[in-house]
């Protein structure tokens, strides 16, 4: 009898804990959206999918001009070729994805039930290659970025709908880890992501305006004029981490995947519009 009571109490407490943290994720998101709404009352929610150009009216004109001849078009075309390439076994990447082509982008990041960790679109592509006896693609290399550019392009207009399943402690842990990463100061400069993209959002670092984190993941991969090429979301994370003089984590590391999970959840309801073009 005692054991039974203990078990019930344990299960109850655990459920309550999940409930609190899960309520936490949605509460976090609502607070996040409200924060930016208070900071920029005139910016409609949907605009945040445009990243910095949602709040930087000076740079917006130039961006729209660039978008007339999109510099990422080549990556999208290349990506389509890779997507349709036939493996030796006669299959293609498409055979690994049960979704409609335009649903693939917004199906990630997600918590993989079998692995118990966050799987991103890039990782899913490599999982598919492994399943088809193909060598893994290097994260940050052209081929995988081009494929994600193609899938982002196909998925344009679909809303982010990242799920943190309330009955999965691993999902909650991944979400919490991403959230903790986002709010922790790091590096010699002692700065958290939130220090710049929440507290100082819209302000200038020298000539650069700080973007809102709401919508940070919607438009990747992006073509960066400064670098003359496409970069992935994780490559951008690494750039930020480096800027605060901390050692960047590896592309597709657990840390960056969890951060992507948290940030994507914050952006739920925004339409994906990648690939993007940035300075």
């Amino acid at each position: 009898m005692r054991k039974a009571i203990a078990a019930v109490v344990l299960i109850g407490t655990t459920l309550l804990m999940y409930q609190t943290v899960f309520a936490g994720a949605e509460e976090d998101r609502l607070a996040f959206v409200k924060y930016y709404k208070t900071r920029f009352p005139d910016i409609p929610f949907a605009e945040y999918a445009n990243g910095i150009y949602a709040i930087d009216s000076d740079a917006r004109g130039q961006w729209l001009e660039i978008e007339e001849f999109p510099p990422y078009e080549f990556a999208v075309e290349q990506g389509q070729e890779w997507w349709e390439a036939v493996f030796e076994n006669g299959k293609t990447l498409a055979d690994c994805f049960p979704q409609q082509l335009d649903e693939i982008r917004v199906s990630y990041p997600r918590l993989d039930e079998r692995l118990g960790e966050v799987v991103t679109l890039e990782m899913a592509i490599n999982q598919c290659r492994t399943a088809n006896d193909q060598p893994q693609l290097t994260y940050g290399g052209d081929e995988i970025i081009d494929i994600t550019a193609f899938l982002a392009y196909q998925g344009r207009g679909k809303e982010l709908e990242v799920r943190v399943p309330e009955n999965d402690s691993r999902a909650l842990a991944a979400y919490e880890s991403g959230k903790r990463f986002y709010y922790s100061k790091r590096g010699q400069l002692n700065l958290a992501c939130a220090d710049c993209h929440v507290t100082s959002v819209g302000q200038l670092v020298r000539a650069d305006r700080l973007s809102a984190s709401l919508g940070h993941t919607t438009h990747f991969p992006v073509y960066r004029s400064k670098l003359g090429g496409m970069i992935s979301l994780h490559k951008r994370f690494a750039g930020c981490v480096r800027d605060v003089r901390a050692k960047p984590f590896a592309l597709q590391s657990t840390e960056f995947r969890n951060l992507e999970y948290f940030l994507s959840y914050m952006g739920n309801g925004l339409k994906v519009n990648g690939p993007g073009a940035r300075k």
Binding site: S200, Q203, L204, V205, R206, A207
Partner: peptide, 16 residues
């Protein structure tokens, strides 16, 4: 300092 502060003749100062 110019990353975040305006200083007299400093070019392109930040305003954090």
């Amino acid at each position: 300092c110019l990353a975040c502060h305006m200083i007299e003749d400093g070019v392109q100062p930040g305003n954090i």
